[in-house]
Design a protein around this nucleic acid. Structure first.
Length: 271
DNA sequence: CTTTTGACCTGACAGC
DNA sequence: TGCTGTCAGGTCAAAA
């Protein structure tokens, strides 16, 4: 479900409620997520004060003085700040209960998400250490993208989903950025020119910034920390719009199966 | 090394 | 109404 803009929307939503608060208890109702929820979360976290809520790629990092909680929302995960008295639903697997009665509740029907605990530098964690640059950071340049694309036969859409190349871009925004850059999703990475890479870098930045400003994209179930949906789905140019007219030229948008995941493009506006 | 495939889960929806 | 099949925002691990 959530790509970078949805995770960032979640981060901004939960941070003001929780910063400076102390964890009172951890409730693990179902530990069977992508990786088993570590028992250390329940033994080490209570008593710790949350002093930062950061995001790296699609991971959220909840920093305390003695360790960091790493959260990934997978395909169907969401985090909400609720009153601890609110009854938990069947997919509410983990609660971090804070002093004052507020509770950070992780819901994840498909259980592809994760919540982990590390007492060392999270940037060196096996899940984070090989991530590529943040797309909104200055290290993400046309030169970097060009070097990553060089000699690659895979579809550019798939290379954009590769977190070692750029961190946090998922299927929606990869397709949207490729539309904006005028590049077909099935083009082989190695066939991109420097000008293509340059347009793609700026397109990714623009699309992600706009999506964050809109509070993310809600296709079926994304909701922010307050339980509200995002609004970027109204601004989608191609994703999920197969058969509908291109907003720029009117040509019907095409869908293509690339690997196991669908790609969307305008055959007139994208080459 | 790169690329492809399977795996992990449940819900929503289309079609019969 | 109810069944079956397909698809979904992610990404790791193993196979080719």
């Amino acid at each position: 479900m959530p790509e970078l803009p949805e995770v960032e929307t979640t981060r901004r939503g939960i941070a003001p409620h929780l910063l400076g608060r102390c964890v009172r208890t951890v409730v693990i109702r179902n530990p069977h997520l992508r990786w088993t929820v570590p028992l250390a979360l329940a033994t080490e976290l209570p008593g710790q004060t949350l002093h930062a809520v950061e995001r790296r790629a699609k991971y959220l990092l909840l920093r305390t003085g003695h360790g960091t909680v790493i959260v990934h929302l997978g395909m169907s995960g969401s985090l909400r700040v609720v009153d601890e008295s609110l009854p938990a639903g069947p997919y509410d697997h983990v609660d971090l209960v804070f002093s004052g009665g507020k509770c950070l509740r992780l819901r994840d029907p498909r259980r592809f998400g994760a919540i982990l605990w590390t007492q060392t530098d999270p940037a060196q964690h096996a899940l984070l250490r090989d991530l590529g640059p943040e797309p909104l950071a200055p290290e993400f340049t046309a030169a970097w993208l060009g070097a990553c694309m060089h000699g690659r036969r895979a579809a550019v859409r798939d290379l954009l989903l590769n977190a070692r190349i750029v961190a946090g871009v998922g299927n929606i925004y990869a397709n949207e950025a490729l539309f904006r850059a005028g590049i077909r999703p099935g083009r082989r990475g190695g066939r991109l020119s420097h000008a293509d890479c340059s347009r793609l870098v700026s397109s990714i930045r623009v699309i992600l910034r706009r999506a964050i400003a809109a509070g993310g994209t809600t296709l079926r179930d994304f909701q922010n920390a307050e339980g509200d949906p995002g609004h970027f789905q109204r601004a989608l140019s191609v994703y999920g719009r197969a058969g509908h007219p291109c907003r720029r030229c009117g040509t019907p948008v095409k869908a293509l199966a690339i690997g196991q995941r669908r790609a969307f493009f305008c055959p007139h506006c994208q080459r």
